[in-house]
Amino acid sequence: MANDAEAKVVFERPHALLPVVTNYCPGCTHGIVERLVAECLDELDVEGDAIGVAPVGCSVMAYDFFGCDMIEAAHGRAPAVATAVKRVHPDAVVFAYQGDGDLASIGMAETIHTATRGENITVIFINNAIYGMTGGQMAPTSLPNQVTQTSPYGRDVATAGYPVRVAELLSSLDGVAYLERVCVDSPKNVRKAKKAIKKAFETQVAGRGYSLVEVVSTCPTNWGLTPQEAFAWMRENMLPYYPLGVYKDVVADGYADAAEAARARAAACPLVNPDASEEGGAR
């Protein structure tokens, strides 16, 4: 008979992740990030209250991987779908899981407006600077001079313009409560990424406003590199362009939530801050 120490479970599949085989390529970081999301749903004990929205892209099948209720959205529309789900079920934990083409190109309008409305949802954003599922085309986050199938001579900024830095862009919006950029290239960074994802969900549960975690990722298959080479390329080229860190945290800034921070930012505007002693308020 085995002793107690031997029987102790030290590692298992998160409950919120279903026991199915994913469609991800070897070395892809989607698997790591989806696992982190599932671990957070488990630890916060919200799987039963969670409703996830999957994108179009490599993680399109995420609705088969997560154990919570799931909705498959049209390309780029996950934030709009998530917005409505949260309005119907304000007590549910609603998240969108999106890639760079989905979130920052075809769905940019939905992304920005969902953020600025301060929808109390969580977005997990995978930025690997390429369209993976369709075979490696230039993404809104592809770096200048990056070679892709549709920028075969390297992304020419004179004709294709510049990449979008999503965390920086969204940090200017008042509806946002928490924004962090992380990566998952090492155990240490995986732990940091999980902390950020958990904090994002906690932000939602506390009703503080919109939260997004951008995960700088890799695409070994379409980059034409081994997983280790891909991480090295990411560290060398992507991290200088997309620096890791917290881009907005209204709690750390001393506010209860995004709404309070927004009022303080517009303190000089009487329409935003009607005198509390006056009857009636804003008109």
Partner: peptide, 17 residues
């Protein structure tokens, strides 16, 4: 909504919910 596209996808979401 920010657009007709967003509006109908919100309809999709609310209906799914």
């Amino acid at each position: 909504a920010e657009s007709e596209v967003a509006a109908i996808n919100m309809v999709y979401g609310a209906s799914a919910a």
